[in-house]
Simulated assay, not measured.
Amino acid sequence: MRLGAVHALAHLAGDAPSDEQVQTVIDVLCAYLRMVYESAPDALPGDAGVEQRDNHRTRDLEFAAFREVRHTILRIIGDHLRDDTRWRGKNYDFTGVVFDGADLSGAEFSEATVDFDAV
């Protein structure tokens, strides 16, 4: 469901009648990226019990889903900034964002405020 919402927001920005609405979509996507990001669960010990394995699997699946949404947002932002779209020249607040696999090469943030500060 989260992935669907991300794609719907990106589509909404493409159809937005004003640049302010495009900026609002970008702000929402960046806010999701700024959410607390916990690393992948540690490996299970060899003597893990059934309950411990089940809990680990649940945490691993939750992490993978969260990471997939984050990577999708970053891919969408990168794709829109590689082409001449209305996403260029907008502000991006990546404060504290963990970039673990994102590729923003070739992205043009022309005339925009972009914040990559660490927290």
Results as ranks from 00 to 15, higher is better:
residue 2 R to V: 10
residue 2 R to C: 06
residue 3 L to W: 06
residue 4 G to N: 11
residue 5 A to G: 01
residue 8 A to T: 08
residue 8 A to V: 06
residue 8 A to K: 11
residue 9 L to V: 13
residue 11 H to D: 12
residue 12 L to G: 15
residue 12 L to N: 11
residue 14 G to K: 10
residue 14 G to S: 02
residue 14 G to E: 15
residue 14 G to R: 00
residue 15 D to T: 08
residue 15 D to E: 15
residue 16 A to S: 09
residue 17 P to V: 05
residue 18 S to A: 01
residue 20 E to D: 13
residue 20 E to V: 14
residue 20 E to Q: 15
residue 21 Q to K: 10
residue 21 Q to R: 08
residue 22 V to E: 07
residue 23 Q to V: 05
residue 23 Q to H: 11
residue 23 Q to D: 12
residue 23 Q to G: 09
residue 23 Q to F: 07
residue 24 T to S: 12
residue 24 T to I: 06
residue 24 T to N: 12
residue 25 V to F: 12
residue 25 V to I: 11
residue 25 V to D: 03
residue 26 I to F: 12
residue 27 D to N: 00
residue 27 D to G: 15
residue 28 V to P: 00
residue 29 L to D: 04
residue 30 C to L: 00
residue 31 A to T: 03
residue 31 A to C: 02
residue 31 A to Q: 11
residue 32 Y to L: 12
residue 33 L to P: 07
residue 35 M to Q: 14
residue 35 M to P: 03
residue 35 M to A: 13
residue 38 E to P: 04
residue 38 E to H: 09
residue 38 E to D: 12
residue 39 S to P: 07
residue 39 S to Q: 01
residue 39 S to C: 01
residue 40 A to S: 14
residue 40 A to K: 09
residue 40 A to T: 13
residue 41 P to N: 01
residue 43 A to F: 06
residue 43 A to M: 02
residue 44 L to C: 09
residue 45 P to N: 03
residue 47 D to W: 01
residue 48 A to E: 09
residue 48 A to Y: 01
residue 49 G to Y: 08
residue 50 V to I: 06
residue 50 V to E: 13
residue 51 E to S: 13
residue 51 E to Y: 10
residue 52 Q to I: 03
residue 53 R to D: 04
residue 53 R to Q: 13
residue 55 N to L: 11
residue 55 N to F: 04
residue 55 N to A: 15
residue 57 R to M: 14
residue 58 T to I: 14
residue 58 T to N: 12
residue 58 T to A: 13
residue 59 R to V: 09
residue 60 D to P: 00
residue 61 L to S: 14
residue 62 E to R: 09
residue 62 E to N: 10
residue 63 F to Q: 07
residue 65 A to W: 04
residue 65 A to C: 12
residue 66 F to I: 03
residue 68 E to R: 13
residue 68 E to P: 02
residue 69 V to G: 00
residue 70 R to Y: 06
residue 71 H to T: 02
residue 72 T to A: 11
residue 73 I to M: 07
residue 73 I to F: 05
residue 73 I to L: 00
residue 73 I to H: 12
residue 74 L to N: 05
residue 74 L to P: 06
residue 75 R to Y: 08
residue 75 R to D: 15
residue 76 I to V: 09
residue 76 I to R: 04
residue 77 I to S: 06
residue 78 G to T: 06
residue 80 H to R: 02
residue 81 L to C: 06
residue 82 R to I: 00
residue 82 R to G: 08
residue 84 D to S: 15
residue 84 D to I: 02
residue 84 D to L: 14
residue 85 T to G: 09
residue 86 R to Q: 00
residue 86 R to E: 13
residue 87 W to F: 15
residue 88 R to M: 14
residue 89 G to E: 08
residue 89 G to F: 02
residue 90 K to D: 13
residue 90 K to M: 15
residue 90 K to H: 11
residue 91 N to A: 13
residue 91 N to H: 07
residue 92 Y to Q: 12
residue 92 Y to M: 09
residue 93 D to K: 09
residue 93 D to P: 07
residue 94 F to E: 00
residue 94 F to G: 10
residue 95 T to M: 03
residue 96 G to R: 02
residue 96 G to N: 12
residue 96 G to A: 15
residue 97 V to M: 05
residue 97 V to D: 08
residue 98 V to P: 00
residue 98 V to S: 01
residue 99 F to M: 14
residue 100 D to S: 08
residue 100 D to V: 05
residue 101 G to R: 06
residue 101 G to C: 02
residue 102 A to F: 05
